[in-house]
Nucleic acid binder design. Structure first.
Length: 550
RNA sequence: GGCGACGUGGACGAAAGGUAAAGUUGCCGGCCCUUCAAGCCGGAGACUGUGGGUUCGACUCCCACCGUCGUCACCA
């Protein structure tokens, strides 16, 4: 077989040389140890946690090393492409502080290693496709879909391995004449790799996350170029990551099974193999068994879910960090206020297995993250969330910013801030008591107390100096009221001999709390009183007394 | 079915052959106390998937088995 003739027949119009490409995309001039990595998603419009996990890992690795992070759009499957997907992607990742140094942008490219959309790189792939044909390492295949199905069925029957290889590789060793004839008839064809591997051969491979793995050589003649001349993922990956000078490939571990093929391709093309980091999948409990988070079944896979629930991006980021780097939690405990980028991210600390996604832990992390924010920051984040998901609430917050910030300042600051808000969605219920329109009574008075006692105490309270100078003075009033109605002003005394009292000062404050906030738990009552103001306090309590009178 | 990865308390995960197998989260309880979802203290929960082997000694190394997940497309 004259491979050169075949190559020229297949690719008659190539007018760039490999040499020219090498020169156009020279090795990057970066400091020693600088990592070049990328995100290479398909533009399906669906951005999920897996993307984030992978993006976060690449981002940290590159930027921490003074390297380059770029965005490449794997749009080789036109069927799955969704308009506006690139924009969504950049926005979603930007939301999590993952920003690119180069790559695809909303409507173009930025950087000198492009184009960064694979479909615009068709010519480039063909240079290498032709080279492979010339070297006898690739050949056209004219099998139809149904022929391929037939092969699969026969393999199933024969209990053979699946795939296009060995005697099943129908077009692997056809003559030039046969190929030419098919070609002239206008039959569609794909370009297949001519694998020289054998599944008898195993080899060791070192993955930066999985460690040393034993892999089996690939013996399948995978498709390199689809019938439309667009490469498959495999071919595009190898060509692009070579020309874009990627040093580290971070991707999901579902790719491990085709890794041997990728390695084969790198070798066949004479490219240097990048380092690989294969990340385990995010799992979820489904009944009693684990499974990979699924796009169809699990809304929590989509990044939009976290946004609409009102998880601050920082919370999701920190939670994923606890999963990605096992020493992150220890670091965070030691440095509660340090910027997250001070953490030294290391691929060595990544777990080779897939982890279960734990919503409870995410919530805990989120509570902590929000509790450490300043009231200003909470306010602005909350408002921007509400603008999108709760217009009414957002209007209310914006109408009186100072008031909102006063509310959000309760129990904030100091070493041990309160952790009342987990997600922005919760904020309305938490803050609602300060807005008459949102004020709802959710709890009732404890049944063991006499209604008249409660009424009397509430009455007495609004007659007292409820706007006391300080918390202590205020609490003194409360104690006096308690005493007057047979409640112990001292909790210890009450516990020592409960039979002497109707209750204790804590119960008294519960009455006021329920009347004032509608709930059995709330932040500090004195603080609340100061914010609500005397008139509204009196009004709420009077309303409550009236209700009790019925 | 082939191939591969993974298997430490409910969850996340330390311990890269050496004392009672960290810590976080969740659960339970107590304390504190003007409430609590906060804080403090404590508790339960693991014969490190199973069975062999190497070793003075194994979560750690080797073998087998089991289980879970992934993958076997002109999808990525």
């Amino acid at each position: 077989m004259n491979f050169e003739l075949l190559a020229n027949t297949l690719f008659p119009n190539i007018n760039i040389t490999e040499q020219e490409l090498e020169e156009r995309f020279p090795p990057r001039r970066l400091a020693e140890g600088a990592i070049v990595s990328r995100m290479a998603p398909s533009p399906t419009g669906f951005v999920h946690l897996g993307n984030l996990v992978q993006g976060l890992t690449s981002e940290r690795l590159t930027h921490q090393s003074g390297g380059v992070l770029f965005l490449r759009i794997e749009d080789t499957d036109a069927k799955r492409e969704v308009a506006g997907a690139v924009e969504t992607l950049i926005e979603s990742l930007g939301h999590y502080n993952i920003n690119f140094d180069e790559g695809a942008t909303k409507d173009g490219d930025f950087g000198s290693y492009g184009p960064y959309r694979q479909r615009r790189r068709k010519e480039i792939y063909h240079v290498y496709a032709k080279k492979l044909v010339e070297n006898g390492m690739a050949y056209p295949c004219f099998c139809t879909e149904s022929e391929l199905e037939q092969i699969h069925m026969e393999q199933e029957k024969a209990k053979a391995n699946f795939g296009y290889f060995g005697k099943w590789a129908l077009w692997r060793d056809r003559s030039y004449e046969e190929i030419k004839e098919k070609l002239d008839s206008g039959a569609p064809w794909v370009l297949r790799f001519r694998s020289n591997g054998s599944i008898e051969n195993k080899f060791k491979f070192n993955d930066l996350i999985k460690g040393q793995m034993t892999l089996t050589e690939n013996d399948i003649d995978y498709v390199l170029l689809k019938s439309d001349g667009i490469p498959t993922y495999h071919f595009a990956h190898v060509v692009d990551d070579h020309l874009m000078r990627t040093t580290h490939v971070v991707r999901g571990d579902e790719w491990i099974s085709t890794l041997p093929f990728h390695i084969q391709l790198f070798n066949a093309l004479g490219f240097k193999l990048p380092k690989y980091l294969h990340i385990g999948p995010l799992m979820k409990m489904d009944g009693s068994s684990k499974r990979k988070l699924s796009k169809r079944k699990d809304p929590e896979l989509a990044l939009t879910y976290y946004k609409s629930e009102g998880f601050p991006p920082e919370s999701v980021y920190e939670y994923l960090m606890t999963i990605l780097n096992s020493n992150f939690e220890d670091w965070r405990r030691a440095n509660p206020d340090a910027p997250i980028n001070d953490f030294k991210f290391s691929s060595k600390k990544m777990n080779p297995a897939g982890s279960l996604f734990d919503n409870a832990k995410l919530c805990d992390v989120s509570k902590n993250v929000i509790s450490r924010m300043s009231a200003e920051k909470v306010y602005s984040s909350l408002v921007s969330w509400a603008e999108e998901f709760d217009a009414d609430f957002s209007a209310k917050l914006k109408k009186d910013k100072e008031y909102a910030i006063k509310i959000l300042s309760i129990g904030r600051g100091g070493k041990k801030p309160r952790k009342d808000i987990t997600v922005w969605k919760d904020a309305k219920a938490y803050m609602g008591l300060f807005y008459d329109e949102y004020f709802v009574k959710t709890d009732d008075f404890p049944e063991q107390f006499d209604k008249n006692d409660i009424k009397n105490i509430l009455n007495e309270y609004i007659c007292s100096d409820i706007e006391a100078a300080d918390n202590e003075t205020w609490f003194e009033h409360l104690k006096r009221i308690a005493e007057k109605y047979g409640f112990s002003p001292d909790v210890k005394a009450y516990k020592a001999s409960p039979e002497l009292y109707k209750g204790h000062v804590g119960d008294v404050s519960t009455f006021i709390r329920i009347a004032l906030t509608g709930k059995t738990n709330s932040p500090d009552l004195f603080e609340i009183t100061k914010i609500l103001g005397k008139e509204r306090v009196i009004q709420r309590i009077k309303t409550q007394i009236a209700k009790l009178g019925q």
